[in-house]
């Protein structure tokens, strides 16, 4: 079985601030890391691989600037067999549609795959929408919010989807895409042994010229229907009451205010 896991390198911190004078973004130089949600996707893929038998393999695919090689190496240390990186200036500025399209082209180039696994969302984009769009581009069904993999058979997987008021057990034949919940499995730690063993392993680098579709209008900013018109700091609320005095006085003032506003019943 051939399994693909989509991963992303995200900033090590979510603390981005805007300089109110210049209107530019300030981001501290904290090291980038693998999107934490992708660790669960990778772990799920490794478990499915183990259940599916020895001729199975796990490929990781990422898109980004050259330094994202680091997360592919990290995936190797967790047991991924192959890695591919989509990196080209033409891919820059991509929104959900262009990102998912680029990934689908990478998957077509390196595939076909029986199963595609994605994390729930990324910590920097937080949209949780790339997986479903990727499935559409690949023309395969998808399921989101997968909380457990219950059985891996030769031609299908039984899994459970977690919805707010029910859990739905489903059976899906290959090929399909799933996005998995945080906590579906405990992700394994990167292994030193695998680190040594995979140090020289070749990674497949793919640029626009390597894609089945080479039309630059379908990638990056130009393939992105959405445009960021402007970025700005969150608006501040105007009406505010600050309660003064020592802490006990503040507590008493708050109790009065809650009573006045009819919260004490």
């Amino acid at each position: 079985m051939r399994i693909l896991v989509c991963i992303k390198q995200v900033p090590g911190t979510t603390q981005v601030e805007i300089d109110e004078k210049t209107g530019t973004l300030r981001r501290d130089g904290v090291a980038a890391k693998m999107n934490p949600f992708d660790l669960y996707a990778l772990e799920t893929a490794m478990r499915v691989k183990a259940a599916a038998g020895p001729d199975s393999e796990v490929t990781v695919l990422t898109m980004g600037p050259p330094q994202c090689e680091q997360v592919v190496r990290e995936a190797f240390m967790m047991g991924a067999d192959k890695g591919a990186i989509l990196s080209d200036r033409a891919f820059g500025g991509a929104d959900v549609l262009a990102t998912s399209y680029t990934l689908s082209q990478g998957a077509r180039k390196t595939g076909p795959y029986d199963l595609v696994v994605c994390g729930k969302q990324t910590t920097d984009g937080d949209t949780a929408q790339v997986g479903a769009e990727l499935a559409e581009w690949l023309g395969i069904p998808h399921v989101t919010n997968v909380k457990s993999v219950d059985d891996v058979a030769a031609d299908h997987i039984d899994l459970t989807v977690d919805l707010p008021d029910c859990e739905v057990a489903q059976r899906i034949p290959f090929p399909f895409l799933m996005t998995v919940e945080k906590g579906i499995f405990e992700p394994r730690l990167p292994s030193y042994k695998l680190r040594c063993a995979t140090e020289g392993r070749e990674i497949l680098w793919l640029a626009l010229a390597d894609m089945p579709d080479k039309d630059p209008r379908h990638y990056g900013l130009n393939g992105s229907p959405t445009q960021v018109k402007r970025i700005f700091p969150p608006e501040l609320r105007v009406e505010r009451i600050a309660l003064g005095g020592d802490d006990k006085k503040k507590a008493a003032a708050l109790a009065d205010l809650l009573e006045e506003r009819k919260f004490l019943r």
Partner: peptide, 20 residues
Amino acid sequence: ANGRSLAPRVAARFRTGLTA
């Protein structure tokens, strides 16, 4: 959960933008 699965799928089908 279901809306966040359906909207991107159909947005991609129409090659159009989606803001989550």
